[in-house]
């Protein structure tokens, strides 16, 4: 099987704190991989290393390799701007720009060279359709994105990532700030998107992981305890910590 992305012996340090220990994980194309674990286990930190988002934190240091095809993402020479175009990200809280719905989507593609209005119009529609948001927004594309509900905003953020046609989409607890109905819509959306993209999702909702993911990695204290097919991991975990966690004994 072709790996879209593989991390090899990844370590992340915040100043003195060693947040992620020797994590090696492969992410397959057109699959959803869930990262689960108690809060503070390093799963979000790991995810943010995959598109070099941790560069934003001055005290943060990342060692090890992250291979995307033959490129090492964690290489000093890597062009992070080009990289982040290929690896999209959706955050815990919806963070649309202070711009119109249309501009939220068109901003990235226009910057990356799509100048023609017809192309952009088309892309905005496609992306909103993919995020199942078109019908709700087609009449107010040029209104502020902040007029949307939280769930709609989050789907807009997903549409914004999709518009750049990335290879991989990283999602950092994308539904944790949303109500149950919005959450289930996001989950449906993720299931549809995996037809095209490799999706890595951090969640602390185990049921969500079980519902939507193909593979699951269980993080504990900065290490990967177990990484397997989701069904296998939830029904027949090989490690005691995993079974303790999924049966709700801690975390």
């Amino acid at each position: 099987m072709q790996h879209a992305l593989s991390a090899k012996k990844l370590n992340v340090y915040y100043g003195e704190k060693h947040a992620v220990h020797d994590v090696s994980l492969d992410f397959a194309e057109k699959q959803v991989t869930a990262l689960i674990g108690p809060s503070g286990c390093g799963k979000s930190t790991f995810l943010r290393s995959l598109n070099r988002m941790n560069d934003l934190i001055p005290s943060c240091r990342v060692t090890g390799d992250i291979m995307m095809k033959e490129h090492n993402i964690n290489d000093r020479e890597t062009d992070v701007v080009a990289l982040r175009k290929k690896i999209g990200m959706v955050f815990q809280r919806p963070n649309p720009f202070h711009k119109s719905i249309y501009e939220n989507i068109a901003f990235g593609p226009r910057y990356h060279g799509m100048k023609k209005k017809a192309d952009l119009d088309n892309l905005v529609e496609q992306s909103l359709r993919k995020a199942a948001l078109w019908d709700e927004t087609k009449d107010r594309l040029h209104k502020s994105a902040f007029a949307l509900s939280g769930g709609q905003q989050q789907r807009l953020c997903i549409a914004r990532s999709v518009a750049l046609r990335p290879d991989i989409i990283l999602m950092d607890e994308p539904s944790s700030a949303l109500d149950p109905i919005s959450t289930s819509r996001i989950e449906e959306l993720i299931t549809e998107l995996k037809e095209e993209f490799c999706i890595v999702i951090v969640t602390h909702n185990m049921h969500q992981a079980a519902r939507i993911s193909d593979k699951t990695a269980f993080f504990l204290s900065g290490r990967v305890v177990e990484y397997d097919e989701t069904d296998k991991l939830f029904l027949d975990p090989s490690q005691k910590e995993t079974s303790d966690y999924i049966s709700g004994r801690f975390g």
């Binding site: 598109n51 934003l56 175009k85 999209g88 955050f91 720009f97 910057y111």
Partner: peptide, 27 residues
Amino acid sequence: VPLQQKEASFALGISKWKTIRSVLLPI
């Protein structure tokens, strides 16, 4: 300006300078 705005822009592969001009400064 909330940090989330900067993150959102960087995550789209927008350069730092463009982010400053088009996302941070307007806010």
